[in-house]
Design a protein around this nucleic acid. Structure first.
Lengths: 339, 339
DNA sequence: GCCTCCAAGTGTTACGTATAACGTCCGCTT
DNA sequence: AAGCGGACGTTATACGTAACACTTGGAGGC
């Protein structure tokens, strides 16, 4: 409360402690090992505390040339999945003195092709999830360190990628269903052009084709309960033998499938089995509880952030996909015996 | 690509365009009405484009003394509700050239009492949701403009508040249930010390008490499906007449109640009615679909951000609670006729 | 007794931007 | 003809911080 009503600066602290501004910077920056005496350091800290001093981040960032802030680009915030990714990323960021700002892309906020204008912060790096290639090249043009989540390692222009082992998850689902005896399977696919969903389709096709006599059909729906409802209803009311299992690209689609099946008077799992992918809270709210693939969203964000920190340090990011786990619940059973 | 490999500065642009750095600032800052000629301005813009110039935000923030960045403090990110609040707030922020950084508080990231250290950005203001009083005073101590969401207007130390009209929502639920003939009601309450949940309890008590012969009981559960499951099961297996309706503090609790009822062999809504509050995607995934109170999360964030912008401008924030709407679905019906 | 060296600091500078204050030329009025 | 103001810039400065280069007063070595 020296004289001014504005926020105290390091110079105000220096004056209060009777030292130079440089000494304050040394002490508060913990760089004072053999440069400032114990007692002076304590005096500085006390003055800072008394004045309620907080360093001006803008000035620090300007001086240092970096901001310790990264941008997390996510496709949407309509499930808790990406909230989990954010939480995981933000936790390890905080451990390393970094902050995370979120950019729900692309049709969300602001001009879609300029995440940087919207994220008002100056950035040290970017973690981008399931991003379209053109937006990717725009970011690359900015020379910012970049980590891609859930993206084709081959198509990422050399950016580091961190992926969940979705392929293995789909393999587990296929093995589970085929092991129960299912041979007519409907794939309820997300109608979103994204690498991760292509992987699901390819992997499922490959594994079902490996078992003779298996038939795989596909229905596409936007990722919403109602979208899945109508798509499933349409797929199940076409002529021909009915599938005995529905593999959904995510849990939300599965919830829509449940509703379609109820409308059609079919019972899960007696008449038809259903699987999801994500393991959202939704999965255990359904009746019966959904057999699904558990994705560890927080670990995903965690690994993504660690990879970005590695890139920033010039180190090699840890490689290897994140394992996923099939969680068998009540929505899958052997197919009904034909009579 | 003049000479340096670092990011181009406004001075580089000036050199390329053959003008002074000040002129560049004028042009790019759109302050050149009668100060720079049309043709020079165009030349500057072209040079900036060619060099891929992006202003250094840290330098701008330092010069300007503000950051156009606000902090949004939310209790958790485990449902899409606060994701919606963020989305709404970020949208209007972007429209006004502001950015939003998120701080999931308090047991989440970093040292709980210092949101500012974790949010690495320098801040112009704070929007805080359902916040405990001690954290509130810590923020107030920093003299930052503050808007409180979902908080007691009387206890906010003079900070602006923006609230959903939860009281009216609860009133609508009570009127709906009482109108159907329910007289024994169980309140499945969130076991979280927060003003918004106190309001729900008080309001429900007041409205049921207004109808003679009505009995209200209460069960408390943490906000999770499993927590609600066990609490509901316990409440319904105590001796005495069974309630005919369960009013849940939010949709997630309602999902837990559904599971408990299924275990007990009770049917919704024939044996017992259930209501929620939030209208998450979960509500329509349940069978039967949940009668609940729709909260417009994005509008909530929108109004919160607008209020903060008003405070920053020295204007008076718009007052008045945000209306909510009862959505009647299949989970409520008249109570079973005693026989 | 002189040189060296270290602890304990201080003075100064640069980061990149926005803007206030200042110059200059020229056309036009009075 | 003198002056005046608008168009079109430029020069200089400050924002608050971190770090480099320097100073100073002893203590210790030989």
């Amino acid at each position: 409360m020296a004289h001014s009503s504005t926020r105290p600066t390091s110079r105000d602290v220096a004056q209060a402690a009777g030292v130079s501004q440089a000494a304050v910077s040394l002490v508060l920056g913990d760089k004072w090992r053999g440069r400032v005496s114990q007692t002076t350091a304590e005096r500085v800290r006390e003055a800072a505390r008394d004045l309620g001093y907080r360093p001006n981040l803008a000035a620090r960032n300007l001086r240092l040339g970096h901001t310790r802030t990264v941008l997390l680009v996510v496709p949407a915030l309509t499930t808790e999945f990406f909230a989990g990714v954010y939480t995981g990323a933000a936790r390890v960021a905080a451990e390393h003195g970094f902050g995370v700002v979120l950019y729900p892309s692309p049709e969300g906020i602001g001009p879609a092709r300029d995440p940087f204008a919207s994220a008002q912060a100056a950035l040290d790096g970017v973690i981008a999830s399931s991003m379209a290639a053109d937006a990717l090249t725009a970011i690359r043009g900015d020379q910012l360190p970049l980590v891609m989540l859930d993206s084709d390692p081959a198509g990422s222009l050399g950016a580091a990628t961190v992926n969940l082992d979705i392929a293995d998850g789909v393999r587990q689902v296929a093995a589970h269903l085929l092991g129960l005896g299912h041979r007519r399977i409907l794939h309820l696919a997300a109608d979103v052009p994204s690498w991760t969903f292509e992987v699901r389709a390819e992997e499922l096709a490959a594994h079902t084709a490996a078992v003779p006599g298996t038939h795989l059909s596909t229905a596409r729906a936007p990722i919403s309960i109602d979208g899945a409802l109508t798509a499933t209803e349409a797929a199940l009311t076409t002529p021909g033998p009915r599938p005995t299992a529905i593999v959904c690209d995510d849990d939300k689609l599965a919830a829509g499938a449940y509703k379609a099946l109820r409308r059609l008077g079919l019972r899960v799992p007696d008449d038809i089995s259903v699987t999801g992918l994500d393991d959202l809270a939704l999965a255990t709210a359904l009746d019966p509880e959904l057999t699904t693939v558990r994705l560890d969203a927080e670990l995903f964000g965690d690994r993504g952030m660690r990879a970005l920190l590695a890139v920033l340090d010039g180190r090699e990011p840890e490689s290897g996909d994140i394992p996923v786990e099939l969680v068998v619940r009540g929505s899958t059973a052997p197919p009904p015996t034909p009579r």
